[in-house]
Amino acid sequence: MPFSEPAPANLPFFAFIRHGETDWNAEGRMQGNQDIPLNDKGRGQARGNGKKLKAHLDGLSVSPVDLDFVASPLGRARETMELLREGLGLPREGYRLDERLREITFGEWEGLTIPEIAERNPDLAEMRRADKWGFVPPGGESYEMLSARVQGWLAGLDRPSVIVAHGGVMRVLRGLLVPIPTAEIPRLDVPQDRVFLWRDGKDGWV
């Protein structure tokens, strides 16, 4: 069934950007709250997203200085935000951090790949495969728990904003905005070279 909580009424325009690629992304490793820096490809993605967002805002006659900028406190999100702001013609600083936008925590599994997890903990790996939404890794959190955290942040969004965070955060955020079955939310595509938009009650990409 779709996630039961609807998006807040009159939610303002916002753009959401996933951080650029890291070496752990390229290797398929679970990052979670490990502070892995962007690689060169990731920095290029961040700069490219800044250009895409600037062109979109120009088309709407929206000035970036009128937007609120908020990022996850993890370094890969902060560097992405700073490169994005440069692309918008803004100083690198001038954004806020919000702990609720941290990536989902994978606990003891952070740094491992899915095949490594399946080899070490085959029973737990199968439990995760069967219920990725509700499964809690050892010492970690589930997508359901992450969604409750992000929902608290979303409920307070009261001005047009640009957000930089993580793949898991993007997945549950989309689940909070549109009717997506919970089993599908953890498997949503989360590109690092596109900008997700919410405007006038509709979602889109640039």
Results as ranks from 00 to 15, higher is better:
Q151F: 14
G48A: 13
R92E: 15
E82V: 05
R85N: 03
L154D: 04
M81T: 11
R43N: 12
P91A: 13
R194M: 12
G44P: 03
V169P: 05
P179S: 00
G89M: 11
V162A: 06
N121I: 07
I104P: 02
P37T: 14
F14Q: 04
N121V: 08
E108R: 15
W153G: 12
R129M: 05
P179A: 01
V136A: 12
A77P: 01
M81K: 04
D123E: 15
R96L: 14
V162P: 02
E141V: 04
G48E: 13
L38R: 04
L88T: 08
P64M: 08
S61F: 02
E116H: 06
Q31N: 10
A165E: 05
G156F: 04
D35M: 11
R96A: 15
V190R: 09
E86M: 13
S72I: 05
K54T: 07
A130F: 06
H56C: 09
D158N: 14
A7H: 01
P115Q: 05
G94S: 13
D23K: 07
D193E: 10
A130S: 10
R120A: 13
D203E: 12
F14A: 04
L188S: 09
G42P: 09
Y143I: 08
D193Q: 09
W153I: 10
P179T: 01
K132P: 00
A71I: 04
W198S: 03
E93T: 15
F196V: 07
A9D: 01
I17N: 02
G134C: 05
K132Y: 10
G42Y: 04
M30F: 15
A148M: 12
I114Q: 06
F14K: 05
R76D: 08
V150T: 12
V136C: 12
T105A: 13
D68S: 10
M30G: 09
I104R: 14
W198C: 07
V70F: 07
L11G: 02
L57I: 06
V164E: 02
A71Q: 06
V172Y: 07
S4E: 00
I36H: 06
L88P: 08
L38T: 13
L57A: 05
V195H: 02
K52R: 11
T22F: 10
I117T: 01
P191K: 08
P37Q: 14
L146V: 11
R159Q: 12
G89V: 10
R100C: 10
S63I: 06
I17Y: 02
E5Q: 00
L154H: 08
A7W: 05
T22H: 08
E141L: 07
R171D: 03
I163F: 02
I163E: 04
V164S: 02
P8K: 01
W24F: 12
G139Q: 12
G152N: 13
G152D: 14
L188T: 09
A118H: 08
R159S: 10
G204A: 14
G44T: 13
A26N: 11
M145S: 14
R78S: 11
I185G: 04
E119P: 01
D123C: 06
V136T: 11
E86I: 12
E110M: 07
A130V: 09
P179Q: 01
V164Q: 03
R194L: 13
R194E: 14
R149D: 04
G87K: 05
I36D: 07
P181L: 00
R76K: 11
E184H: 03
